[in-house]
Computed example of a mutant assay.
Amino acid sequence: MVYSITGNPTKPNLWAPLSELVHRLLDDGLDFVLHEPIADGLAERDLVDDAICRDHAVRDIAEAGDLIFSFGGDGTLLRTAHLTGPNDTPLLGVNIGRLGFLADIEIDRIHDALDALEAGDYDVEERLVLEATSDSPPAFDTEWAVNEFALDRSGAAGLIEIEVVVNGTPLNTYWADGLIIATPTGSTAYSLSTGGPIIAPGVEAVILTPIAPHTLTVRPIVLPADVTITCRVLENDQPYVFAADGRSTMFEEHAIRFTVERAAHTVNLVKLPGQHFFHTLRSKLMWGVRRSDGG
């Protein structure tokens, strides 16, 4: 197996454990490549020999390895997924961030993770991905999302009016700050923060979660994964954004139809022994933890 290694070079606590992993791979005679910014960072800090970094550096990690280590947080793992494009290379997220629903291997378990990988003791989860098209320019920054698409007001005061049609049948016209169209993977991200439900990763579903709706009876709704969702922001005097996994494109023109459907590809995440979605919920959201008041 060839391991590809990437990460978030802006995180100061990235470099020491990353260099330990590289030296472990060298000592064990295992094949690996380093994303060019990571190779440069290791060499500049004298953590790995410059010649070794040059020999293992690649610009395109998508085509260079059989499995990709992504060091950072959930945002880094999402960027890695988009960097590699629509392919089936498994991703292993190593958490050096704060929460880590996607990057759920903690940094101090990286050597245990490598042992499991070399023993073939791991699974690969296929995560549902959404794709979007529109009937008008400008082009999106990205046309597919692992977590969610969001139609959102651009920061200007006032709500936006979003008409939503599902499989050709009108669902609702939302008067709100915006609307999130999320995957089960994205149910613990932006959608959760705005009151959406948590959906287990294996569920075939799409979630529509309004952002601060004007009418309190408007609630999130869970739809089958294979629906076609068409949205358009009705006429008003303010711009709005269409965002994919946090990457936003500004629109001035109204009545543009955005169509969201299930993508043909998936994003594949590596899961090691002992990892389970329920464990992640308990540890990250502190489910079941009782507060001690000292009484």
Score class of each variant (00 low, 15 high):
D177G: 05
I107D: 06
D55M: 03
D152L: 13
G100K: 12
G73E: 10
W175N: 00
D74C: 08
D135V: 03
L78H: 12
G65Y: 04
P170M: 01
I105D: 07
G155N: 10
S136F: 14
L151Y: 01
G97Q: 05
A64Y: 04
L99K: 07
G155T: 09
S154Q: 10
E163H: 12
D115N: 14
E118M: 12
Y174S: 01
A139W: 04
D108L: 06
A62Q: 02
R127V: 04
D141V: 11
I160S: 01
R79F: 04
D66R: 08
A57F: 12
E143A: 03
L171K: 04
D112R: 14
F101Y: 15
D74P: 09
A64F: 09
R109A: 14
E125D: 15
T133M: 01
D112M: 08
A116W: 13
W144Q: 02
C53Q: 09
W144N: 04
T84C: 15
G168E: 11
D152H: 13
H82Y: 05
F101I: 03
V58M: 02
V164K: 00
P86C: 00
S70C: 09
S70H: 05
T76A: 08
F69Y: 15
T133N: 05
F140W: 05
L117C: 11
R59P: 03
D177C: 02
D74R: 09
A64T: 08
T169W: 03
I162C: 01
T84N: 07
D55Q: 09
G100A: 10
A145H: 07
N167V: 06
E118C: 10
S136Q: 09
A176N: 03
A62W: 06
L99S: 05
L171Q: 09
N172T: 06
V165Y: 02
A139P: 05
L91S: 06
A51K: 15
V165P: 02
F71L: 11
A113S: 15
L130Y: 08
D50A: 15
V129Q: 06
L128R: 05
E148H: 12
L114M: 13
I160P: 03
L159I: 14
G155I: 06
G100E: 05
G168K: 12
R153S: 11
I61G: 02
P138R: 11
F69V: 03
